[in-house]
Nucleic acid binder design. Structure first.
Lengths: 243, 243
DNA sequence: CGTAGGTTTGACTGATCTCAAGTTTGGTGG
DNA sequence: CCACCAAACTTGAGATCAGTCAAACCTACG
């Protein structure tokens, strides 16, 4: 289905097509954006908080996260990302990074000059609209995370995070939502849900004991989606996946 | 300084001017947007989660908040808003509301048809850019809130919320950041910081006992900004106020 | 096959919540 | 202008969810 041509950007273009109508010229406009492709290992920092930014970064393969730190050195992961995601669209109009962007697996990614991206947005309103919608969904997910971290108990928080990851992954054409490998460590899950590694471990064990999920290393199988959705208080409406 | 003409939208236009360059035609384009002005009392619900939306709402006077609920009925406030703020710009490209928008004081506000706003954005790139930047700052604030709620202890959380409110208010030309009246109840502060009313009350008392703030009813005076910023772990960079 | 990173388990601690009751405040109608 | 009422705020005591500290166990990779 995807992967017609469009080269390295195919996952990105497929994603934008899901966000809004693109004609051939729009697709060409994206394919022809200047870019530099790089690869990095897990842990590689792509953007650092405070930095002046002149490129946007599109993830082509692998997984990444965005995070912020408190003065005391506690880390909050604010989002996870997968192939096709644009990692820092905010830099289109905000010159200074307010958080970190980091790989959580081996990955490849493309740097696109902000200038070219802005030109594309001005010249091709369809591209602008798709990207803008992407940034609005990004914000909607942050709101859900505020709710998740602020109001839900720890088991629900983790379950919610797993549901979101499963659904987004599947929507991005990366495989079944019932059975998949988690790219993140329990420490990263802890930093994303505002809890400790130890408690993440215990809650994952409880989910297993309850029979909602099965686990083998990082492989997660969601045995009972109905029950899982219930436990997670998960309603995918906030992901705004097109009807 | 504001309030040149521009009528009801003056606060909104002033805000957009801070977000990006607008020429006279841009300002006229905004002033001439069709709109319906209404007033409401504290508690009035402007937008309800799940609703299909065809208007965006600009706050002209008073205060509002946006919130989401868990299935169990716990409420998370995800942002506070003041005169000049656009309350639900996400509806520009997302048809269905993923959260509630509600007045927290008596207020007046203007409904602008999405269609007209989209046309303005397409026809006048400066307007589009200012609004897009606004939505990106909105998202940056959500990220900070995820960090705040996820990683900071309760006293720091409240102090951070107070700092943010003081600075945004002052940047919007609504008065000094040192001395101001809070429009929100302690229950609303609790819902915004993910804690209970009771604990909010105790932490506010501690801040007073420490001598960082003074309080008289809802009036807050920040006695020592240096100490307050320290306690709050507050760095305003995430607000992306222009240099 | 050694080592570092990741995961698991146990015992104890503590920040924050819950429950309960009382006080103050602000708005409304008489 | 005062009396009343609901909402908002305050205080105390006990309960609990999740954190901290400590240690062992995997397991993937060099």
């Amino acid at each position: 289905m995807p992967d017609n041509d469009a080269g390295a950007f195919s996952a990105f273009i497929e994603k934008l097509k899901r966000l809004g109508p693109l004609d051939e010229a729009d697709v060409a406009g994206i394919s022809n954006l200047p870019s530099r492709i790089e690869m990095g290992r897990s842990g590689h920092l792509l953007v650092k908080e405070g930095q002046r930014v002149e490129f946007c970064c599109v993830l082509l393969r692998g997984y990444a996260c965005r995070s912020k730190m408190t003065r005391e050195g506690r880390r909050q992961i604010v989002s996870f990302h997968m192939a096709g995601d644009i990692l820092d669209l905010q830099h289109l109009f905000l010159a200074q990074a307010d958080h970190n962007v980091q790989l959580i697996t081996e990955a490849s990614y493309a740097w696109i000059p902000i200038k070219s991206l802005r030109a594309a947005v001005r010249n091709r309103p369809n591209i602008g609209e798709a990207l803008w919608r992407d940034s609005l969904i990004d914000a909607s997910i942050f709101r859900e995370w505020v709710l998740n971290v602020g109001q839900r108990d720890s088991k629900t928080r983790i379950a919610h995070m797993l549901c979101e990851f499963a659904i987004r992954r599947s929507a991005a054409g990366l495989g079944s939502p019932d059975h998949f490998e988690l790219p993140m460590t329990q420490e990263q899950i802890a930093d994303a849900t505002g809890m400790t590694t130890i408690h993440v471990n215990r809650m994952l064990s409880e989910l297993r004991e309850q029979g909602v999920i099965r686990r083998d290393k990082r492989i997660i199988e969601i045995v009972n989606w109905n029950q899982m959705r219930q436990i997670a208080d998960f309603d995918p409406a906030y992901l705004h996946q097109a009807a």
